[in-house]
Design a protein around this nucleic acid. Structure first.
Length: 98
DNA sequence: CTGTTGACTCCGG
DNA sequence: ACCGGAGCCAACA
């Protein structure tokens, strides 16, 4: 098990229509490797099995995405979320806590 | 083993 | 609201 695998496991727990943050993931892993989490997503050898698009920044903004953040936004919208001005609308309501 | 890098976060100006 | 700097940690060269 590597740090990355743990990230993916958590990621898969996120139900459709919900999102989480890099911070939340790191925190759940008992670490503060926010950035390492991002790197793990970037690699994402398990896509699309692992919904890395459900991970956003702590302030509710989209962040980055391997296939372009625009794509990320689209995917999230397809899952029932609303994004406005690059930020998630009603972020606290769709935030998933592990 | 050391150094650099990043899909980040927090805090100050 | 916007920008910059410091802190964080795993992965990779």
């Amino acid at each position: 098990m590597t740090f990355r695998d743990n990230c993916y496991n958590l990621l898969m727990q996120i139900p459709k229509g919900k999102v989480t943050t890099y911070k939340a993931i790191a925190n759940k892993l008992g670490s503060k490797a926010y950035r390492a989490v991002g790197s793990a997503m970037k690699n994402n050898p398990n896509a699309p099995q692992v919904p890395c698009h459900r991970v956003v920044k702590s302030d509710g903004s989209i962040g980055e995405y391997a296939y372009g953040k625009n794509k990320k936004i689209k995917l999230l919208k397809d899952e029932g979320l609303s994004i406005k001005g690059g930020k998630i609308v009603d972020f606290t309501a769709v935030f998933y806590e592990f």
